[in-house]
Nucleic acid binder design. Structure first.
Lengths: 200, 200
DNA sequence: TACATACGTTCGTTATAACGAACAAACAGC
DNA sequence: GCTGTTTGTTCGTTATAACGAACGTATGTA
C-alpha cells in the first residue's frame, strides 16, 4: 500500500484540493456559450455559487458538481478526472464528450479536446447530414478556425464569401466574423475542426 | 443544441444524486481492511462523517471525497466514475511485440494543420489498415498527444501501459515517451491526432 | 460474572456551502 | 449623453456538512 498522508484538523482546503475544477467548469460553460445565469437555470445551482466554484472560492458538494455536470452534458467523473489527472492516459468514452447540435438538428459538434496555452485551442469532431447548416456567431477577435474534411462536401461562408471544400481538403478562415458551414452534398459530411483563440 | 434537464429548487438530494458513492467508499475501505477509525486517521475526515457517507446520509463536499480517495489510494475521478455508470476499461496486456513496421505501409499520417504559437501545435489525419503499427520515438519533453478515433479500433501503448480505444472515444497521453499506435481491429482505423509541444 | 477493547452510530456545536437579492460593470439602443 | 439589459460579483441569511465527544453494541479475557 502506498504512503498515506496523515492530515489533521484543517478541513478548510478549498482550491488546494481541486485546482482545476473551476477552470473545467468554466471551460465547459463557455464551450456551450452559456452565461452564469443560463447555466444556473439549467442546472438548478445558484449563479453566485457557480461564480464561486469557477474561481475556486468554495468547496462544493458532490451534489452541486453533479447537477452542473449534468447540465453540461457530461458526468461528474469526467469533470473531476482532469483534476486527478496525472495518468499517462486520459480516456474519454463517447458519453463523456460534450456534444453540440445545430438548430436544424442536422449537425453535431463534439468537443474532443482543448488546451490551455497562452492561446486557447479547442478541437471538435463535426458531423453534418445533407442540408445541415451550422451557424456561428463571431468568436473572439483574432480567432482562427481550421477545418479538415474527412468525408463528404462542405460549403463554408464567411462574411459573404463562399468556399466549397471536399474530402481530403482543408480550409482555414477567420472565426471572428459570422460564419456558417453547410453540407452541400448528398451524403453525410464529416470533418475535424480546430479553433484557436487567445486566452481570456 | 441538445436537451438539458431543467431542474429547480430542491437542492437537498443526498443519496439520490450519487447512489453508489457510499457503497464504493465502503467497498474500498473494506478491501483495505480498515475500520472507520483507521480510515478517519489516515484521511483526516471524521469517522462520523465517513459513516454517514457510507450510508448515503449526507452530501459530502468535493474536498472530503478527495481526502478519502487519496487515503484509499485512488482518485476522486475513479471513485465517482462508477457512479456515473461509466465503463472502466480493461487494459493491460499483451506484451506486444513491437513490430517496428511503421515502414509496413499500413499506416499513413497526414499533416492537416499546424500552428506556430509560443507552443507548437500540429494535427494529423491518421489511417491504419488492420494490423498496422505506428511506432514513435519520444518527442520533446512535456509534449502531449491527443487522439480522437473516428472509426475502427486502436490500441495505444505508452511506456508499457496499454489502452484500447474505439470509434467515438478520445485519448490523451504523454508524447515524451516511446509510444505506439496499433490498429487492433478487423477494419481500417481512422483518427485525428493533435500533437502539442511546449517549450520550443 | 465483570471488565476491557474495538467497532459503528448518534448527538450537540461550529464552520461553511448554498441560496436569493442587491450590486456594479459593460454594452445596446434611443 | 441617458437608460434599459445583460453580465459577473458581493452580501446577509439559512440550511447543512464537518467536527469531536458520548453512546450502545458486540467481542474477547480474566
Amino acid at each position: 500500500m502506498s504512503m498515506r498522508s496523515v492530515r489533521k484538523g484543517n478541513h478548510n482546503l478549498d482550491s488546494d484540493v481541486t485546482p482545476a475544477l473551476g477552470k473545467t467548469i468554466q471551460r465547459l460553460r463557455k464551450a456551450y456559450k452559456l452565461s452564469l445565469g443560463e447555466l444556473s437555470e439549467q442546472s438548478g445551482v445558484a449563479k453566485s455559487i457557480i461564480s464561486q466554484i469557477e474561481r475556486n472560492e468554495t468547496n462544493p458538494t458532490i451534489g452541486t458538481v453533479e447537477r452542473l455536470s449534468r447540465a453540461l452534458d457530461t458526468t461528474i467523473g469526467e469533470v473531476l478526472k482532469s483534476d486527478a489527472g496525472e495518468n499517462f492516459f486520459e480516456h474519454q468514452g463517447r458519453s463523456g464528450i460534450p456534444k453540440l447540435e445545430s438548430e436544424d438538428g442536422l449537425c453535431t459538434l463534439a468537443i474532443i479536446g482543448a488546451l490551455d496555452l497562452v492561446e486557447y485551442v479547442q478541437w471538435y469532431d463535426f458531423h453534418a447530414r445533407p442540408g445541415g447548416i451550422l451557424e456561428s456567431e463571431p468568436h473572439q477577435a483574432g480567432c482562427v478556425e481550421h477545418l479538415f474534411i474527412i468525408e463528404g462536401e462542405l460549403e463554408i461562408t464567411v462574411g459573404g464569401e463562399v468556399r466549397r471544400v471536399t474530402a481530403g481538403q482543408s480550409i482555414r478562415y477567420a472565426g471572428d466574423r459570422p460564419h456558417s458551414i453547410r453540407n452541400a452534398g448528398q451524403q453525410d459530411a464529416h470533418a475535424t475542426m480546430v479553433l484557436v483563440m487567445r486566452a481570456p
